[in-house]
Design a protein around this nucleic acid. Structure first.
Lengths: 241, 241
DNA sequence: TCCCTAATCTTTACATCGTAAAGATCAAAT
DNA sequence: ATTTGATCTTTACGATGTAAAGATTAGGGA
């Protein structure tokens, strides 16, 4: 609020002045003319999602409004409602896009890993790297309270993400993890892995680790801290005499 | 938006009709009358913070608006602005209240602990318990993007919280942790503890652990999962032949 | 080919929100 | 007692989400 944007509500402008009704010009444009914004967009839904992603990257979570997305796409402010129902709908579909991007990044994360250690660290590092590269998207996926997981696309993408996590933890523990039942230790391993990486990511994105990073040896990166976090023992003094 | 609340903007009502100006009734109430909403509240700032806490618990983060807080406190919608500057100000001061509550809960968490194990688990359990008891407040403290840490009260309370964490990790590692420099292992230990508990809490509050909890042995509580998460080894197969 | 229906998109309208600015009221210092 | 400054209210404005009605067009059946 309070941003003094000087911008007309619709980027397209009124097509034909209704009341004066100059009957001459036919509504259908005479072909061989640049198709300037036809009434029916054709693929508005996808265009709106792409526009939403741009707005999110440019203006952050706070700037991602239905009307801003409509402006970015060059349609009337009510157009998104028709395709997504409400803001929750748009955010949910966008979150689904994010989860799919995220899943792709996870899937190709251990491609270049050679040693077992590299392999073990590849996923967590890719997780944090995705969030750092797309903080807005990560916010949509994990910070917003307005997500509707009953939407098939979101449910599916999020579940695939969770399945990938379960799988990775199973590989790490060198055991098959069943789809329908978990031992307490298995559940704990999954929850630990997820909590640790997700918590680290949130704290990092919120700048709350600056306090730690600033006290660490000169030039220690978040990645290095993450590595150390994942490798060193959980409790007790560091190894020594 | 869209909620059809039938409610007048100010709960107090206009005190004296300006224009008709019936000059009879004196503005100062004749004493021995219930002090019904004097023009100057006297302690509005604190009253607003308490009102904000009530609104937060009743209507959640989405319902916590400047105007809703003003209504709850029975003052005009612009009154909060005078005391907090803007919404960020109110949220920041409220977050400070939350951090102080949180710090108090942390401080008294290990009071009843007897065994070393109980002592080690007391803080994390109290952490999650606070968030479960005050999900709105935890959201203000860790989910909102509109916090101004340059406000002394918030900065102080949040720093105290961080100091408590550092302290607890130092005790666990049986070593003194200096205030100005950290080894990588120390930083990793702090980041791991915080990330794990914070991540677990966020996922739990967002209902994202239901998937795991539902697959665990019948009746496994989040607390039990947290315990297992904190105790069992980080990597490798569970102990056994 | 023509028309009709339904989907798509725009206009219009409204309640709510954050915030700014100006006016009213009162406590306290001078 | 008067003035001053803090406190609170009124009024106003632009932005947002959402509902409802109108305009436009694609696509299918006659």
């Amino acid at each position: 609020m309070g941003k003094s944007e000087i911008r007309t509500e619709t980027a397209r402008g009124a097509r034909t002045p209704k009341k004066p009704s100059a009957p001459a010009r036919p509504a259908r444009r005479p072909a061989s003319v640049k198709p300037e914004a036809p009434y029916h967009h054709g693929a508005l839904r996808e265009a709106l999602l792409r526009a939403a992603e741009r707005v999110l990257e440019r203006d952050g979570l706070a700037g991602l409004t239905l009307r801003a997305v409509a402006r970015e796409a060059g349609v009337s402010h009510a157009a998104p409602t028709h395709h997504f129902g409400d803001l929750t709908g748009l955010l949910s579909e966008l979150a689904a896009v994010g989860f799919r991007q995220f899943n792709a990044a996870m899937a190709s994360s251990s491609d270049t890993a050679t040693t077992p250690l590299e392999h073990a660290l590849a996923r967590p590092k890719a997780y944090v790297a995705y969030a750092q590269a797309h903080p807005g998207m990560y916010g949509i996926m994990f910070r917003t309270e307005r997500l509707d997981y009953s939407r098939p696309s979101l449910h599916e993408a999020a579940e695939a993400s969770f399945a990938g996590l379960t799988n990775a933890v199973g590989m790490m523990r060198q055991e098959q993890i069943s789809g329908d039942a978990l031992t307490l230790n298995q559940g704990a391993a999954i929850a630990r892995a997820w909590s640790m990486v997700h918590g680290f990511t949130m704290l990092l994105l919120d700048g709350r680790l600056e306090d730690i990073l600033g006290r660490l040896p000169e030039g220690t990166t978040p990645e290095r801290l993450l590595e150390a976090m994942l490798m060193s023992p959980v409790t007790g003094k560091p190894p020594g005499p």
